[in-house]
Design a protein around this nucleic acid. Sequence first.
DNA 1: GGTGACGCAAGAGCAGTGCTCTCGTTTGTG
DNA 2: CACAAACGAGAGCACTGCTCTTGCGTCACC
Lengths: 234, 234
Amino acid sequence: MTSTPHGARARARIEITAAIKEEARRRLAEQGAAELSLRAVARTLGMASSAIYRYFPSRDDLLTALIIDAYDSLGEAAEAALKASAGAAAGERWTAVCEAIRGWALAHPHEYALIYGSPVPGYAAPATTVPAASRVGFALIEVVRDAHRTGELDVPAVPADLEPEAARMAADFVPDLPPAVAPACVAVWAQLLGLIGFEVFGQFTRIVEDRDAFFRHTIGGLARTVGIRQAGPS
Amino acid sequence: MTSTPHGARARARIEITAAIKEEARRRLAEQGAAELSLRAVARTLGMASSAIYRYFPSRDDLLTALIIDAYDSLGEAAEAALKASAGAAAGERWTAVCEAIRGWALAHPHEYALIYGSPVPGYAAPATTVPAASRVGFALIEVVRDAHRTGELDVPAVPADLEPEAARMAADFVPDLPPAVAPACVAVWAQLLGLIGFEVFGQFTRIVEDRDAFFRHTIGGLARTVGIRQAGPS
DNA sequence: GGTGACGCAAGAGCAGTGCTCTCGTTTGTG
DNA sequence: CACAAACGAGAGCACTGCTCTTGCGTCACC
């Protein structure tokens, strides 16, 4: 099977695919996902609109590619913060990772909207996006796991009616942690992204002014919710 | 006597305006905001597409009207739960209002996406949406205010660097409550809607199964965050 | 080294969109 | 009754996603 990538042709394909995504990302940053037009991308790339379809079979496929890239970019930012804070106290690591996620979101609002906003058309995200989407969550979980290892984690209580669900969630995602932390992790994950979403989507306009201080304080509360003991008296 | 300024004409206008919104809302529920087409609405209403513009000067104006209606509908649901739970313990009222908001969101996912999802086009929500948007928040605050009145509220601590912001927020929105609860209210508001958004937008797929139990438990945590003492030992 | 097959770009074209303009018709009022 | 404002319909512009056909360049195999 000569499945070799056949030199020049394949390389050109990769380059053009990247150029299309890059230009699409640029337009996405300036306008929104709804305004992203294949024809406009093709125009500024100097190619016929029909040529784009050699690389992306449809507009939705382009969007899917951008979504995966965005998930990866966000996950990378979170993992970088995770790595940079290795060895620090759990509370500090938590803050670092949360701030990294928020920082990425504020720097890429339209990409954030693409992945955590309302699904664009009737479009259901294909299963291919799942692994990329999980990276952020795993970065968050890693902090919790580390806190557990170093004894900085207070395992929260779980009511009886949530116990089976907690056990299932733990078995699926954090088999090495006490089941009770699993629901807390998921809840805090959703709440954190919700908080960031409100800021990015402008829901805090005329309501929160000092957003840095507000965010810092709020994620401290989230850390407490998930059971991470805070360093300072706070 | 012709009490109405200009009789039949005005009535017809109101009716047609309502019919357009109703049909638009129906299409919104089946597809999404991005697919909402003025021409399609006009077609199923049996009128020329250009005639719609006599009632809504642009597609964005139609969307704005739908957004305001959605905010009002959601606010009404929250207020109804507030009224129905009058006299109950603060923790129960909190649960009731949160469940009402979640119930509305699950029943009207596309309208929820319209108001709390990513802003549709490049479209910035005009100031006219603000009062309607505030109703949900006020319903939540009312529970906190009531808890404060009956002594069921533990005022949370606020770090020094957030104090000025807390004072400003309290002065603007809850002058009758201790400043320290203001940031907690805003944070919990964002977190609650974020949580609901994750459920509505399908982010919990394959992660949370028993969503009722999960939500019930999580909003208990939110109540604690805002300082509402829970009834049971939890 | 030919030669056939495939990858690719371009153009025309279809159906759909938001929105504007014009042209009669209807309707309420002075 | 007459006039003006409101209204509906249609044509039309510029744009979109997407398909199909045509022709050119490049690659791989014999």
